[in-house]
């Protein structure tokens, strides 16, 4: 019963969404989706968020209790959580308030910093990828040189054909492989959905039978 009822709910929900995909009828598009499904999704999301907050709080409080390595950092979680929550609840989330100030002056720069690291990581990854140690790696290196050079004015100076070659690489071999993967992904997604609908795939129910 522990698995049967959730399985039944999932299969029923899945079948409704199959019908939703194929039927433009008002009952499914308006009455079910807009008036029932969407409001319930909005209503239930905060409860799931609460689960997340409880989980995070429990993990950090247990770290502090156990004096786990680097347990002092857990205080930062609580401090950040409480200050941000209070700033939002008391001062509101509008521009000019403490919450938005913290978002713009703390979270955004920190996120931007993390994102900017990507450039250096890419250089490091490119170095690893472009070492011409095998035939495949050499092809990758040559293709990358063409594409990269075509992106900068210097490439056009070297040869006026470079942008055409670069575009051909992007449009033909690159796009073909992307579409190949895309086709597999699409079919795989349909297969997984079918497995769920037919009750073959049950991992999302929390493992075991």
């Amino acid at each position: 019963m522990k698995k049967t009822i959730p399985l039944f709910i999932v299969i029923l929900g899945g079948l409704i969404f199959v019908a939703y995909a194929f039927s433009p009828h008002r009952f499914l598009q308006d009455d079910f989706y807009n008036k029932f499904y969407v409001p319930w999704t909005y209503a239930s999301a905060p409860f799931a968020a609460l689960l997340g907050i409880i989980s995070l709080s429990m993990m950090h409080s247990s770290k502090i209790k156990r004096r786990a390595p680097k347990w002092q950092f857990s205080y930062f979680f609580f401090a950040g959580f409480i200050v941000t929550a209070l700033a939002g609840l008391i001062g509101g989330m509008q521009k000019g308030g403490l919450f938005m100030w913290m978002f713009e002056n703390m979270q955004m720069p920190m996120s931007a910093t993390m994102f900017s690291l990507l450039a250096f990581y890419m250089a490091s990854a490119a170095y690893k990828a472009f070492r011409a140690r095998s035939m495949e790696a050499t092809v990758l290196l040559v293709a990358a040189i063409f594409v990269m050079l075509a992106q900068v004015p210097l490439g056009v100076k070297i040869s006026k054909h470079l942008p055409t070659i670069s575009q051909w690489i992007l449009d033909v071999p690159n796009l073909a492989s992307k579409r190949g993967i895309g086709l597999g992904v699409g079919l795989g997604a349909v297969a997984t959905s079918l497995k769920i609908l037919l009750g073959i795939e049950r991992s999302y129910l929390g493992g075991g039978d």
Partner: peptide
């Protein structure tokens, strides 16, 4: 999160090691 916690917990139970399951290792 609750799904992942349930999957890991079930895995520990299925191999007879419920004692080693720590739900704080699966966290948000």
């Amino acid at each position: 999160l609750p799904i992942a916690q349930e999957i890991v917990r079930e895995a520990h139970y299925s191999v007879g090691r419920p004692d080693t399951y720590d739900k704080n290792t699966v966290f948000y």
